[in-house]
Amino acid sequence: MTDTTVSTPVTATGLEPALEPASSSRAQKRKARKKAAKDPKRKITWDRVWAQRALLAMSVPLLMYQILFKYVPVYGWAIAFQRYKPGRGSIWNQQWVGLQNFHNLFTGVNGERFRQVVVNTMGQSVLTLIVGTFGAIVLALLLNEVKNLPFKRILQNITYMPHFLSWVIVASLASVALSLPSSGGFINQGLMSLHLVDHPVLFLTQPNYFWEIVAGTNLWKELGWNTILYLAAITAIDPGLYEAAEVDGAGRYRKMFSITLPSIKPTIVVLLIINSGWILSTNFELPYFLGNGLVSEKSETIDVFVLRYGYQLGNYSLAVVAGIFKTIVAVILVGSANLAAKRLNQETLV
């Protein structure tokens, strides 16, 4: 659960396919792989296994470990088909109820609530993704125009920093920033001194602001970090293009919109596609920390639902059904997003 991949951004996970070698080398690789499969030297024989016993000893226990901790827990899915009572002990000692929990969650008594939960998850994710992508592109373009390198580096260091703070800290900072001026809510202070509002707004009690708060807080935390890939793409642009444009009399804006932006378009598209695969998997911490009884209709996401219903209220069966739904949809979405990105990659990132 000390999930290190959670702290690295989704973009980092999706990074591998994005910057993979070009299509031609991939085709060659595939051919080489096919050849290798037929190669008698690569056949698995007892001699080879014995010769590699050291490598096997170093890897097989860890493989067992990984299977135990990542794949074996699937046995817990069984309780989706049971009326699970923790008091009855092991999961083999429970009453089986078939698909009743699935009916409950999707169409029955919890149907309406769960639909809202799915809508919330997707709404928060999509808004976060759009705002985050747009913000990161703008910031990358503007940072690229800073010619004073030490100043640029300082700006980068400051904007990357929030990425490393924990969600607990970020949520804590956000709840203070959004509170009343008397509790340190500087957003209200700012709005009031600009005369945009007459009375302080209790942001965290208004359901209609919740998605925007999630997207805004995400933006604050990940904005700088998300520029890294775009800045890397910008540095890969051939400087000759800019020189040619200058000779033709192009100004800064012209160069930005006619060279920089089109050049990083493939990166933008690939990252958007890959990140959209995680649409049901992001946004757990913020809705959990900042959500409360007054805004739950807009704040509750699938993960929060699972934690509340399953872990805290003890309705394990219903929570596991929701979890299975999320996992299956996520695997399909992430898988197809990666496939799409790879296919696109071949055509556009050559």
């Binding site: 901790f69 990542k70 827990p73 046995y75 817990g76 872990y311 394990y316 979890g323 996992t327 695997v331």
Partner: peptide, 24 residues
């Protein structure tokens, strides 16, 4: 072996099943 590990980047049994494993 690489494939078995890489797939866990995308697949997660879920919060409750993981909890049950640790418990068991």
């Amino acid at each position: 072996i690489t494939l078995i590990f890489v797939l866990t980047l995308y697949f997660d049994a879920g919060l409750i099943p993981n909890y049950l494993l640790i418990r068991d």
